[in-house]
Protein backbone atom coordinates (compact mmCIF):
# COMPACT_ATOMS: atom_id res chain seq x y z
CA UNK A 1 0.00 0.00 0.00
CA UNK A 2 2.85 2.39 0.91
CA UNK A 3 4.67 1.39 -2.24
CA UNK A 4 1.63 2.01 -4.44
CA UNK A 5 0.98 5.42 -2.87
CA UNK A 6 4.60 6.42 -3.37
CA UNK A 7 4.55 5.36 -7.02
CA UNK A 8 1.25 7.17 -7.61
CA UNK A 9 2.70 10.34 -6.07
CA UNK A 10 5.73 10.08 -8.36
CA UNK A 11 3.32 9.62 -11.28
CA UNK A 12 1.47 12.83 -10.45
CA UNK A 13 4.74 14.72 -10.14
CA UNK A 14 6.02 13.40 -13.46
CA UNK A 15 2.73 14.22 -15.18
CA UNK A 16 2.81 17.83 -13.96
CA UNK A 17 6.46 18.15 -15.00
CA UNK A 18 5.68 16.79 -18.48
CA UNK A 19 2.77 19.17 -18.99
CA UNK A 20 4.68 22.20 -17.75
CA UNK A 21 7.74 21.57 -19.88
CA UNK A 22 7.91 23.75 -23.00
CA UNK A 23 10.69 21.61 -24.44
CA UNK A 24 9.15 18.62 -26.21
CA UNK A 25 12.35 16.58 -25.87
CA UNK A 26 12.26 17.00 -22.09
CA UNK A 27 8.52 16.27 -22.01
CA UNK A 28 9.01 13.06 -24.00
CA UNK A 29 11.80 11.90 -21.72
CA UNK A 30 9.59 12.55 -18.70
CA UNK A 31 6.76 10.58 -20.31
CA UNK A 32 9.17 7.68 -20.78
CA UNK A 33 9.94 7.77 -17.07
CA UNK A 34 6.19 8.02 -16.43
CA UNK A 35 5.61 4.79 -18.36
CA UNK A 36 8.37 3.07 -16.42
CA UNK A 37 6.78 4.08 -13.10
CA UNK A 38 3.42 2.76 -14.33
CA UNK A 39 5.18 -0.50 -15.26
CA UNK A 40 6.53 -0.72 -11.69
CA UNK A 41 3.01 -0.06 -10.42
CA UNK A 42 1.63 -2.96 -12.48
CA UNK A 43 4.36 -5.21 -11.05
CA UNK A 44 3.47 -4.14 -7.51
CA UNK A 45 -0.13 -5.08 -8.34
CA UNK A 46 1.09 -8.54 -9.53
CA UNK A 47 0.17 -7.85 -13.18
CA UNK A 48 3.58 -8.87 -14.49
CA UNK A 49 2.52 -9.35 -18.11
CA UNK A 50 0.99 -5.87 -18.27
CA UNK A 51 4.04 -4.37 -16.56
CA UNK A 52 6.33 -6.11 -19.02
CA UNK A 53 4.36 -4.76 -21.97
CA UNK A 54 4.21 -1.28 -20.50
CA UNK A 55 7.97 -1.22 -19.98
CA UNK A 56 8.72 -2.50 -23.49
CA UNK A 57 6.10 -0.54 -25.42
CA UNK A 58 5.31 2.52 -23.28
CA UNK A 59 8.76 3.32 -21.99
CA UNK A 60 10.70 1.89 -24.93
CA UNK A 61 9.23 1.98 -28.40
CA UNK A 62 6.65 4.75 -27.85
CA UNK A 63 9.29 7.10 -26.49
CA UNK A 64 11.55 6.41 -29.45
CA UNK A 65 8.68 6.95 -31.90
CA UNK A 66 7.83 10.27 -30.24
CA UNK A 67 11.50 11.25 -30.45
CA UNK A 68 11.40 10.46 -34.16
CA UNK A 69 8.32 12.65 -34.54
CA UNK A 70 10.04 15.50 -32.63
CA UNK A 71 12.96 15.11 -34.99
CA UNK A 72 10.56 16.04 -37.78
CA UNK A 73 8.54 18.83 -36.19
CA UNK A 74 11.10 20.61 -33.97
CA UNK A 75 11.43 20.46 -30.22
CA UNK A 76 10.03 23.84 -29.14
CA UNK A 77 6.39 24.34 -28.36
CA UNK A 78 4.86 27.48 -29.91
CA UNK A 79 4.31 30.33 -27.46
CA UNK A 80 2.37 33.55 -27.58
CA UNK A 81 5.56 35.32 -28.57
CA UNK A 82 5.62 33.50 -31.86
CA UNK A 83 3.85 34.59 -35.02
CA UNK A 84 0.51 33.50 -33.55
CA UNK A 85 -0.69 37.05 -32.85
CA UNK A 86 -1.74 39.17 -35.76
CA UNK A 87 -0.57 42.74 -35.14
CA UNK A 88 -3.53 44.27 -36.91
CA UNK A 89 -5.95 42.90 -34.35
CA UNK A 90 -4.21 44.47 -31.38
CA UNK A 91 -2.98 47.90 -30.57
CA UNK A 92 0.74 48.14 -30.03
CA UNK A 93 0.19 48.79 -26.34
CA UNK A 94 -1.73 45.54 -25.88
CA UNK A 95 0.77 43.62 -27.97
CA UNK A 96 3.66 44.89 -25.90
CA UNK A 97 1.90 43.80 -22.71
CA UNK A 98 1.20 40.40 -24.16
CA UNK A 99 4.79 39.96 -25.19
CA UNK A 100 5.87 40.68 -21.66
CA UNK A 101 3.33 38.30 -20.13
CA UNK A 102 2.60 35.63 -22.71
CA UNK A 103 0.68 33.38 -20.34
CA UNK A 104 -2.02 35.87 -19.41
CA UNK A 105 -3.56 35.75 -22.85
CA UNK A 106 -6.50 33.61 -21.84
CA UNK A 107 -9.31 35.36 -19.96
CA UNK A 108 -9.54 34.64 -16.26
CA UNK A 109 -13.04 33.21 -16.66
CA UNK A 110 -11.80 30.36 -18.86
CA UNK A 111 -9.01 29.51 -16.44
CA UNK A 112 -11.33 29.42 -13.42
CA UNK A 113 -13.94 27.53 -15.42
CA UNK A 114 -11.39 24.89 -16.42
CA UNK A 115 -10.33 24.36 -12.81
CA UNK A 116 -13.95 24.09 -11.65
CA UNK A 117 -14.75 21.64 -14.45
CA UNK A 118 -11.71 19.48 -13.59
CA UNK A 119 -12.68 19.43 -9.91
CA UNK A 120 -16.27 18.45 -10.76
CA UNK A 121 -15.13 15.60 -13.02
CA UNK A 122 -12.63 14.45 -10.38
CA UNK A 123 -15.38 14.42 -7.74
CA UNK A 124 -17.68 12.47 -10.06
CA UNK A 125 -14.91 9.92 -10.74
CA UNK A 126 -14.09 9.56 -7.04
CA UNK A 127 -17.80 9.10 -6.28
CA UNK A 128 -18.07 6.43 -8.96
CA UNK A 129 -14.87 4.68 -7.82
CA UNK A 130 -16.42 4.05 -4.40
CA UNK A 131 -18.62 1.37 -5.95
CA UNK A 132 -15.66 -0.39 -7.58
CA UNK A 133 -14.64 -3.71 -5.97
CA UNK A 134 -11.25 -4.00 -4.30
CA UNK A 135 -8.35 -5.12 -6.49
CA UNK A 136 -8.31 -8.92 -6.57
CA UNK A 137 -11.55 -9.24 -4.60
CA UNK A 138 -12.68 -12.86 -5.18
CA UNK A 139 -16.31 -11.89 -4.59
CA UNK A 140 -16.30 -9.19 -7.26
CA UNK A 141 -18.77 -9.95 -10.09
CA UNK A 142 -15.96 -10.19 -12.65
CA UNK A 143 -14.12 -12.80 -10.59
CA UNK A 144 -17.03 -14.81 -9.20
CA UNK A 145 -18.86 -15.64 -12.44
CA UNK A 146 -18.84 -19.47 -12.48
CA UNK A 147 -19.04 -19.68 -16.28
CA UNK A 148 -16.30 -17.21 -17.16
CA UNK A 149 -13.56 -16.29 -14.66
CA UNK A 150 -14.06 -19.30 -12.38
CA UNK A 151 -13.95 -21.69 -15.33
CA UNK A 152 -10.85 -20.02 -16.84
CA UNK A 153 -8.99 -20.29 -13.54
CA UNK A 154 -10.12 -23.87 -12.88
CA UNK A 155 -9.17 -25.10 -16.36
CA UNK A 156 -5.89 -23.21 -16.41
CA UNK A 157 -4.89 -24.85 -13.12
CA UNK A 158 -4.71 -28.23 -14.88
CA UNK A 159 -1.15 -29.56 -14.35
CA UNK A 160 -0.57 -30.01 -18.08
CA UNK A 161 -1.91 -26.61 -19.12
CA UNK A 162 0.42 -23.67 -19.60
CA UNK A 163 1.39 -22.13 -16.30
CA UNK A 164 0.69 -18.53 -17.25
CA UNK A 165 -3.04 -17.90 -17.08
CA UNK A 166 -2.61 -14.63 -18.98
CA UNK A 167 -1.21 -16.50 -21.98
CA UNK A 168 -3.99 -19.08 -21.78
CA UNK A 169 -6.67 -16.38 -21.76
CA UNK A 170 -5.03 -14.30 -24.49
CA UNK A 171 -4.15 -17.14 -26.82
CA UNK A 172 -6.86 -19.67 -26.11
CA UNK A 173 -10.05 -18.25 -24.65
CA UNK A 174 -9.58 -14.90 -26.38
CA UNK A 175 -7.61 -16.04 -29.41
CA UNK A 176 -9.85 -14.19 -31.82
CA UNK A 177 -9.26 -10.87 -29.99
CA UNK A 178 -5.51 -11.43 -29.97
CA UNK A 179 -5.61 -12.00 -33.71
CA UNK A 180 -7.43 -8.68 -34.09
CA UNK A 181 -4.75 -7.01 -31.97
CA UNK A 182 -2.05 -8.40 -34.22
CA UNK A 183 -3.88 -7.13 -37.30
CA UNK A 184 -4.20 -3.68 -35.67
CA UNK A 185 -0.42 -3.52 -35.20
CA UNK A 186 0.08 -4.52 -38.82
CA UNK A 187 -2.46 -1.90 -39.95
CA UNK A 188 -0.60 0.82 -38.04
CA UNK A 189 2.65 -0.13 -39.76
CA UNK A 190 0.86 -0.25 -43.12
CA UNK A 191 -0.61 3.24 -42.66
CA UNK A 192 2.73 4.76 -41.64
CA UNK A 193 4.37 3.01 -44.56
CA UNK A 194 1.82 4.36 -47.05
CA UNK A 195 1.97 7.88 -45.63
CA UNK A 196 5.66 8.35 -45.00
CA UNK A 197 7.64 6.15 -47.32
CA UNK A 198 8.90 8.28 -50.14
CA UNK A 199 8.44 6.73 -53.54
CA UNK A 200 11.60 6.69 -55.61
CA UNK A 201 11.61 9.75 -57.81
CA UNK A 202 10.77 8.82 -61.34
CA UNK A 203 10.22 12.23 -62.91
CA UNK A 204 13.54 13.83 -62.13
CA UNK A 205 14.07 14.70 -65.78
CA UNK A 206 10.97 16.89 -65.73
CA UNK A 207 12.63 19.15 -63.20
CA UNK A 208 9.82 19.03 -60.64
CA UNK A 209 10.46 18.71 -56.91
CA UNK A 210 7.25 16.80 -56.32
CA UNK A 211 8.65 14.76 -53.43
CA UNK A 212 8.08 17.53 -50.93
Amino acid sequence: MVMESLLLLILVGLAIAAVRSRDLLVATSILGAYSLVIALLWCVMDALDVGFTEAAVGAGISTVLMLAAINRIGRREATAQGPVLKPTLFSMQQRREQLQQPDTRRPRLIKVGAVVLCLLVAMALLYGAQDMPQVGDPDAPANSNPDVAQRYIRDAMHPDASKNIVTTVLGDYRGYDTMGETVVIFTAALCVLLLLRQAPMRREDEGGTDAD
Binding site: I61, T167, T182
Partner: peptide
Protein backbone atom coordinates in the same frame (compact mmCIF):
# COMPACT_ATOMS: atom_id res chain seq x y z
CA UNK B 1 -3.00 -26.63 -27.26
CA UNK B 2 0.65 -25.96 -26.42
CA UNK B 3 1.57 -26.35 -30.08
CA UNK B 4 -1.19 -24.01 -31.18
CA UNK B 5 -0.25 -21.39 -28.57
CA UNK B 6 3.41 -21.44 -29.56
CA UNK B 7 2.40 -21.10 -33.21
CA UNK B 8 0.21 -18.06 -32.72
CA UNK B 9 2.72 -16.45 -30.36
CA UNK B 10 5.39 -16.82 -33.04
CA UNK B 11 3.01 -15.21 -35.53
CA UNK B 12 2.34 -12.32 -33.17
CA UNK B 13 6.07 -11.85 -32.62
CA UNK B 14 6.85 -11.77 -36.34
CA UNK B 15 4.16 -9.18 -37.06
CA UNK B 16 4.99 -7.00 -34.05
CA UNK B 17 8.76 -7.07 -34.64
CA UNK B 18 8.43 -6.23 -38.34
CA UNK B 19 5.73 -3.60 -37.75
CA UNK B 20 7.70 -1.83 -35.01
CA UNK B 21 10.78 -1.80 -37.23
CA UNK B 22 8.74 -0.34 -40.10
CA UNK B 23 7.19 2.28 -37.78
CA UNK B 24 10.55 3.37 -36.41
CA UNK B 25 12.50 3.42 -39.65
CA UNK B 26 9.81 5.23 -41.60
CA UNK B 27 9.16 7.84 -38.92
CA UNK B 28 12.82 8.56 -38.33
Amino acid sequence: QHIGLIGIEAGVMITVAASMAILFFEMS
